[in-house]
Amino acid sequence: MTRRSDGPEDVDAAFAEIVADLEREGVGENLTAEPSEPEPSEPETTGPGVAEEQRPRPEPEPRPHASEWRTAEREWDPDADLDIDSDTEHYEPPEPPPVPRPHAATIVALVLIAIAILLFAAPNLLGISSSAAIPLGAVAAVGAAGLLLFRLRSGPPPGTPGSDDDGARL
């Protein structure tokens, strides 16, 4: 095998070294021990000369008793994490926060979108020919989209937790 800059020269030797280190630490000791054979106290019930009915069936593993099961430190209460009133038995969510007031630029963008829709759908309502309404509607739609996109924030609003955080520091 040729020597590469990112690996050992002999992979088998490196693997054997890793396995030897793990064995020194005691990893896998229970895997190498052979199971002990029970001493036969009864006559032979397996083999070619024994009928199927005479062969003993293996005993299933006994199930642990309920007292041996692992339990939690406290009993589980399904209603513990919910804000449930025991008299009414239904969940009442908290009041939602109020809707923020739109900024003036948002209102202008919505008006431009409405004008663009009106120019595309019914230019005769405004008294403009359809050949002039299509470019005006396109300009209004692009202007509204641009106004809304430039108003997008790249982070949390100022004054909220985390707004002054500029990332991880080492």
Rank of each mutant, 00 (worst) to 15 (best):
L118S: 15
P38E: 14
A121T: 15
D83E: 15
V108Q: 07
A72S: 06
W69T: 06
F120L: 14
P93K: 00
T71S: 02
S131T: 11
G47F: 10
T106H: 04
P135C: 14
L118K: 10
P58I: 10
G7W: 04
T71R: 11
G137A: 12
L82D: 10
E52W: 05
P100M: 04
S36T: 11
S129L: 02
E44C: 00
E68K: 12
Y91L: 13
D12S: 14
E29Y: 08
A51T: 15
R24L: 11
T88W: 07
G137F: 05
S86K: 10
F120A: 05
E25S: 07
D10M: 04
P8F: 10
A51N: 04
S36Y: 04
R55D: 01
P135Y: 12
G7S: 08
I113F: 12
D81S: 03
P8T: 10
Q54Y: 09
P62S: 13
P35V: 07
P35Y: 07
E17F: 09
A114D: 14
Y91R: 05
P8V: 05
R70C: 06
E42Y: 06
A20I: 02
A33R: 15
S130R: 12
A80V: 08
A13V: 09
V27Y: 14
D87N: 13
Q54D: 15
E52D: 13
P60F: 07
G137T: 11
P98L: 12
R70K: 07
